[in-house]
Amino acid sequence: MTLVLREAVRGPDDETVWRILKPAVEAGETFCADPAGGKAGGLSYFWPPSARVWIAEAEGAPLGCCYLRPNQTGNGAHVCNAGYCTLPEARGKGIARAMLDHTLAEGRAQGYRAMQYNFVVSTNTRAVATWERAGFRIVGRLPGAFRHPTLGFVDALVMWKDLRDGA
């Protein structure tokens, strides 16, 4: 499978990005987007004006999407933030890792000094392990910060990677 990441265009690609996000947003297990917020809420959460979004495709079929944006404005704008989502049938095939590698390279190319994930749901163990293998460190734990639909209040993690290390 040859995976291609192409930059999404707001408007023409909204439906494709939403089709990828919809199962995860509505499940309410990994994103803070309102599960009942529909397409407008999901896109607003994942694709604010400050973000660049890419769609991961194989043979023209969308499998995932990711974003990269400044984590903060002003004196915090040298740190980027990224997010990833894959279709349920595409999980476990290296799509998220390929999108991670893409956003790390983009972050470095855009001059960011670090990448920070502000709110990784601790029960999303597959993602946590992927990010740790890529050199991210857990630098904070927010006790009970996420209301999981079946597990109740679970911790959220803050994860960090220095982009100046070349890894």
Rank of each mutant, 00 (worst) to 15 (best):
E29K: 10
G60I: 13
T123L: 10
T73D: 14
K93E: 13
R19H: 03
L3C: 09
I95P: 08
A90K: 09
A27C: 09
I95G: 08
A129L: 10
A145P: 06
E132Q: 15
K161Q: 14
T73I: 09
T150M: 00
L151K: 12
A56T: 06
T123R: 09
Y67H: 11
G83H: 02
I138Q: 03
G166R: 08
N118I: 15
G11P: 09
P48N: 04
L100K: 03
Q72A: 15
I95Q: 05
V53R: 03
H102G: 04
R133N: 13
N81V: 05
R126Q: 09
C66E: 07
A105Y: 08
R113D: 13
A56N: 11
H102D: 03
R19W: 03
R97I: 05
G144Q: 05
V53S: 02
W54N: 04
R6S: 12
W54I: 10
L3K: 07
R108E: 03
N71D: 10
V154E: 04
L163I: 10
L104S: 04
G28D: 07
R69Q: 15
V53H: 02
R141T: 08
L163S: 08
M159E: 01
L87E: 12
A96E: 14
R147W: 01
A145I: 06
D101I: 01
L63E: 12
R19A: 14
R69P: 01
L43Y: 00
V121L: 03
G76V: 05
Y117D: 01
V25S: 00
W47L: 04
